[in-house]
């Protein structure tokens, strides 16, 4: 295995030096590591982000394999453990803090020292709660709203609300039996969010 210095210079050859320098000491908190959160984490790690706090109470199930960044061998494993394995297979030198608990307003403080929080929950109520937490605590938060179905990819966008809130998605299509949740649109939304996080970590505040 390459030592850390050599690995970083090889693996991130194609990343701008300025990006690496600006983001190397930043921490991102990801609330929920299902379809959105697992894909966002992968994009961030591939962009040289070193420090993540990942939180999810759930285990990997067969029904996750259609869109979440897990493999067959992860079935039954806690999502935070499975994701740590995936991420360290990309960059073995990252710092991952894991919370294998159900998240609600009583424990959102696990993210209090993060530079940016990512909202990647499945349920609308949880999304509302952590967005409220972030705004009250003046934390940047990037949320995902509306990514179900096979509707046009071109209606997925990122909007800024107030000073601290960014929302990616089509703002409309909810997950239900008719729409379903497809890898393509979930990953598009996840990567919209990841891109916004990468911008915020470099003090780029416009969407």
């Amino acid at each position: 295995m390459l030592n850390e210095e050599v690995f970083i210079s090889e693996a991130f050859k194609r990343l701008p030096k300025e990006l690496i320098n600006k983001t190397k000491n930043k921490t991102v908190g990801i609330a929920g590591v299902g379809g959105l959160g697992s894909n966002i984490a992968v994009a961030l790690i591939r962009t040289g982000i070193n420090n993540l706090i990942i939180a999810d109470f759930d285990k990997v199930e067969y029904s996750n394999l259609n869109r979440q960044y897990y493999f067959y061998k992860h079935i039954g494993m806690s999502k935070v453990d499975a994701l740590e394995e995936q991420l360290k297979n990309i960059n073995p030198y990252i710092n991952i803090e894991k919370y294998n608990h159900y998240l609600d307003k009583n424990n959102f403080d696990i993210f209090k020292d993060c530079d940016v929080i990512v909202e990647a929950f499945d349920k609308a109520k949880n999304k509302e709660e952590i967005v409220d937490y972030a705004i009250r605590n003046k934390k940047y938060i990037v949320s995902g709203v509306g990514m179900a179905g096979d509707f046009s990819a071109n209606i997925i966008q990122t909007k800024k609300l107030g000073k601290y809130l960014y929302i990616s998605g089509d703002f409309k299509h909810e997950a239900n039996d008719k729409n379903g949740l497809l890898a393509s649109r979930v990953a598009i939304t996840a990567n919209h969010q990841a891109n916004m996080v990468i911008r915020l970590l470099q003090d780029k505040y416009e969407v």
Binding site: G32, G34, G35, L36, G37, A120, F121, D122, K123, A124, K125, K127, E128, V131, D132, I135, R136, S143, G144, V145, G146, M147, A148, K159, L161, G162, K163, Y164, L165, I167, F171, K172, H173, E174, A175, N176, L181, V186
Partner: peptide, 29 residues
């Protein structure tokens, strides 16, 4: 008008030509 209004301030009065953005959270992730 470009500022988030938290729930405890929903008694705030609106005035003509105020600009509101309202996002309804929907499930999926």
């Amino acid at each position: 008008n470009k500022k988030i209004i938290t729930k405890d301030n929903y008694n705030k009065e609106l005035f003509p030509n105020d600009k509101l953005e309202i996002v309804t959270f929907v499930g999926g992730g």
